[in-house]
Design a protein around this nucleic acid. Structure first.
Lengths: 196, 196
DNA sequence: GTCTATATTTGGATAGAC
DNA sequence: GTCTATCCAAATATAGAC
């Protein structure tokens, strides 16, 4: 029996709660006191788990990037068909942005400038393996003439297009995630692949 | 003769300097003291020109949106050909993001969450006329089968794709703005319009 | 591992002299 | 329109008791 539900790992709980607060309010506008209150402890106690406030942001991002990479990796192995593989990657990134991981993912996408330079480089290095998966698949898509724009530039434009969806797209609205993913792929591959 | 160069309009100078600081450091990490020092006055004097710090951010955004709308409007009248008109809009937005207006534009794109709700609505309302120009042209492009994705969704994906370029694109690099604009249009219109 | 208490800094904003 | 001086609030972080 567990006397302290959810508290088996307070550090994990702090990271999840911080992700939500940082996403809702922004890192700078979130105080350590708010975070502490949200998990039911006092502000001083937070510093038993983290060295500094920035350390919390770093933890949010590193754990998020690990999840992102794992899921994208899995998606890239879902099919041998390049077109389907591309769709799987798009759908996965949109799921990351709008599913249970949304807070951490949004923070990772849009708040890395709140990190100091050293930590920024650390996060960037971690993101590299995530981006590599993308570039591999986009390279295949380009080689098989599924897409006709440069894979590198395409990925960067796509990063913006997908990331920006957090500001307007609502999964519970008219357009579901599959339909949105299909629209995004249609944008990349052109009308030829719209009718199957 | 002017004894006080650049100071004819101190308020304007403060807005321009604030745009740069807010873009470089972020709104929350920029102090009124820093801004004051950058224009050569003391922090108390700033509040002769603005009611509050948030008021400065609001001024940055409203003046920026006016410029954005003016320039996009001009671009939309540059040609009667839909394809060229679309390219002109893309090129103009990229110029706004990377030219002399870049600081204010980046702040307007990515830091509106630092505004209170009331001011957010104000800014959103101002942006509407800018977005209307886009939706008109994308609607024309869709009607003439130049693009095949929904104009509304397309614009939102495009907003993200273009806005995100501030994080990776450098106008002084290998790819010039015309080439980037061409890539973006190629993404929207598909391979059919890539070879002219 | 958490709390109490607090050190220390910083930032937005104001009042009144010049 | 700017400066001087300062108020006040809020925030990160620490030390030591429990």
């Amino acid at each position: 029996m567990n006397r302290t539900p959810r508290l088996e790992n307070r550090r994990e709980h702090l990271i999840q709660t911080a992700a939500q607060l940082f996403n809702d309010l922004g890192y700078e506008r979130t105080s350590v006191r708010q975070l502490a209150e949200a998990v039911g402890i006092l502000s001083g106690s937070v510093f038993h788990h983290f060295d500094s406030k920035e350390d919390i942001l770093l933890a949010v991002m590193t754990t998020t990037i690990e999840t992102m990479t794992t899921r994208l990796q899995a998606a890239s192995k879902a099919s041998n068909d390049v077109s389907e593989r591309l769709l799987a990657l798009i759908r996965t990134e949109l799921e990351l942005l709008h599913g249970d991981t949304r807070h951490g993912v949004a923070v990772t996408f849009f708040q890395w400038h709140s990190l100091g330079h050293t930590n920024q480089r650390h996060v960037l290095a971690m993101r590299a393996s995530y981006e590599k998966i993308w570039l591999d698949v986009l390279g295949q898509a380009h080689a098989s003439q599924l897409i006709h724009t440069d894979p590198f530039i395409t990925r960067r434009l796509l990063t913006g297009a997908n990331g920006w969806t957090i500001y307007w797209y609502r999964p519970d609205g008219r357009l579901d995630l599959d339909a949105l993913a299909a629209e995004v792929r249609a944008l990349l591959t052109g009308p030829a692949n719209q009718n199957r």
